[in-house]
Design a protein around this nucleic acid. Structure first.
Length: 586
RNA sequence: GGACCCGUAGCUCAGCUGGAUAGAGCGCUGCCCUCCGAAGGCAGAGGCCGAAGGUUCGAAUCCUUUCGGGUCCGCCA
């Protein structure tokens, strides 16, 4: 199902072709890609407008006004068009019939919470990789934002017809997991009764490692006590990483996030796939031995120029070439990452999206360069950077958490305000803008809290539906009954305005999905909630505008159908955001 | 030094990939509560879209330059 803007645009293009075929206008160019039907900004201009005359005037050699008149005349033949006029520099404004909008309403009721779904993505495979936190501790608020963002983006892409895989890359190969192992070993000794005192600088201090130490004791007994590190490091590391990943998954489940693939970096090292990736690049002539210049600005103390194995990232838009091997011969993180993205490509993902934290911004160019290089330009990587979340309580910064030993954990936040609030709030800002998250404000029940405002709209509509069933005994407010309502009773300008708002929702979803910007869904829901609350408020001054009319069950039913549609659209949008629509506010 | 992000109302931010008279919430001013839920409602004031050029029918949006704020720079992960 495509939304009505595209349907109208297709119809328009057909009419343009007919005009050209009849010789009324000159022959059209090959593609009419720039020609669109859009909502008007000002309702006074009509319901929708097309830029066709402006977009085509040049190639056709006609003045926009003249071409616009032809287009307007042609569109008057459309059954839903009740008015077509040329305005401004050459826009063709169209006013659509009330019947057309009632049909849109009926379509919403038929689709239910699936409203807005489409096959625009044509089942193409998309890989969304997000969270991918190092398995060294519980997730913190920064991960929380990335987790919600990635999950909502994945749902959004699914909604418009992409085949989405949600993926987590486990950084289980670097020095940090060795640190984890040493930290866990300390807790292991502690579990055996040793007084470990202060956690030394450089090791992870969090309490969450205490049960890991106990688990190590249970599994290995005293076997590793007083043994050198080379004996215990690997088994302790494996055990600790597994424990961390269990914890990470639990944290994610608290947000109702379940990823499809958990991909181990370590497996790339042991399977020879990094060598394979290197070979791909060698075959393309993109690897050489060379010496990089020292980074400018902040000079590392121990910098010495050395010949290294380098990837020609600068040929693909990066600022400089990048090292793939350390001086000790080990692979760099970047080398493993190339192999990882090659693996994604080989699994059929030509569309790849990585969601990263704010501190990784400097890594984007080289990764995009690498993906371009290894796929021969066939795969496209989009990297979404999630900016910082500033936590406050009553305006005061919140930074510490007991459990982690330092940072505020994802669990701290979810446990306090709930998953729905967290998920919605994390999406009320563009990913590249910082978020202020105030524990007091996000749970406040007022208009300036968007979570509440949207939830309240759904609850309020549901409440009226429940009240109607009580007020008018025998009135069937079930979905089937509402679908059979006489929608021609939906006739006031305000009601139709709300229908128009809802009908525009699928187009907004598509735009949000294509831009990889799930926050737009949250804003669309806010607008819809505002539209509904506005209609509701009109009924306070003018009783004839209220939804329930005891003496007119048919009118009531039609208006309840409108309310049901509001619920459906909100449920559809909240579903993408991963927020549960509520029946009532408490 | 360089790269990236941001700069829109007093504040916090949207702005649907270049469209018509730039929007919302908060705050401010005035009016409104016997009323389907006043955990509000209506109306109003408030803008050189950081600045300067450029691209074109048309720019908050694209390009260049510039100023301000933030993040970052590695053989780390």
């Amino acid at each position: 199902m495509t939304h009505f803007f595209d349907q109208l645009a297709d119809d328009l293009k057909g009419r343009l072709s007919a005009l050209a075929a009849a010789g009324t206008i000159p022959a059209l160019p090959e593609t009419l890609g720039g020609v669109v039907i859009e909502p008007t900004r000002d309702p006074a201009h009509g319901d929708v407008a097309t830029n066709a005359a402006l977009a085509l005037s040049k190639v056709l050699g006609l003045k926009p006004q003249v071409l616009g008149q032809q287009i307007a005349e042609a569109m008057r033949g459309h059954p839903a068009v009740v008015e077509a006029s040329v305005a401004g520099p050459g826009f063709v404004n169209l006013r659509l019939s009330d019947g057309f909008w009632r049909d849109q309403l009926a379509a919403i009721l038929a689709a239910g919470a699936a409203f807005g779904a489409s096959d625009k993505g044509q089942g193409q495979k998309v890989n969304v990789e997000y969270v991918s936190a190092n398995p060294t501790g519980p997730l913190h608020v920064g991960h929380c934002r990335g987790a919600v963002f990635g999950d909502a983006l994945a749902a959004l892409l699914e909604k418009i017809g992409y085949a989405v895989t949600r993926e987590y890359y486990i950084n289980d190969a670097g020095g940090q997991v060795d640190t984890l192992a040493r930290s866990a070993f300390l807790r292991y000794r502690e579990a055996h009764g040793e007084a470990i005192g202060e956690i030394p600088e450089g090791l992870y201090p969090g309490d969450y490692l205490v049960p890991v130490g106990a688990g190590l004791k249970e599994k290995f007994g005293d076997r590793f006590l007083n043994q050198p590190e080379e004996i215990w490091l690997k088994p302790v590391k494996d055990f600790a990483i597994a424990a961390m990943m269990v914890m990470v998954r639990e944290d994610l489940e608290a947000l109702n996030i379940k990823q499809d693939v958990f991909f181990s970096e370590y497996s790339l090292h042991t399977s020879g796939r990094i060598d394979e990736a290197l070979q791909v690049l060698i075959d393309k002539g993109l690897i050489y031995e060379g010496v990089l210049e020292a980074p400018k600005g902040k000079q590392p103390d121990d910098w010495e120029p050395r010949p290294q194995t380098l990837f020609k990232a600068s040929e693909f838009g990066d600022d400089t070439d990048r090292a793939l091997k350390k001086s000790n011969g080990a692979w760099t993180y970047f080398a493993a990452d190339i192999a990882y993205h090659l693996d994604k490509y080989r699994r059929g993902f030509r569309r790849q999206i990585d969601v990263w934290g704010a501190d990784h911004g400097g890594y984007i160019k080289r990764m995009r360069a690498a993906v371009k290089a290894i796929s021969g330009g066939e795969a496209e990587l989009d990297v979404k950077i999630c900016q910082l979340v500033k936590l406050t309580r009553g305006g005061e910064p919140v930074k510490m958490s007991k459990r982690s030993g330092s940072f505020v954990t994802l669990r701290d936040v979810v446990d306090e305000v709930g998953k729905d609030v967290v998920r919605f709030m994390m999406l009320t800002r563009k990913n590249d803008a910082p978020i202020d998250f105030d524990f007091d404000k996000v749970t406040e029940q007022s208009k300036d809290n968007p979570v509440f405002y949207v939830q309240y709209a759904h609850a309020r509509a549901r409440s009226v539906l429940r009240n109607a069933a009580v007020d008018i005994p025998g009135l069937d407010t079930g979905r089937a009954s509402l679908a059979g309502a006489s929608l021609d009773r939906i006739a006031t300008v305000d009601e139709l305005a709300l229908v128009k708002l809802m009908a525009a929702f699928p187009r907004q979803l598509e735009a949000a999905a294509e831009a990889h910007e799930p926050h737009r869904v949250a804003f669309a829901l806010y607008d819809l909630a505002a539209g509904f609350h506005g209609l509701w408020n009109k009924g306070k001054d003018d009783p004839s505008l209220r939804f329930i009319h005891k003496d007119d069950p048919a009118l009531t039913l039609a208006r309840l159908a409108l309310l049901q549609a509001v619920c459906d659209v909100i449920a559809s949008g909240l579903g993408i955001l991963g927020v549960t629509p509520v029946e009532e506010m408490r």
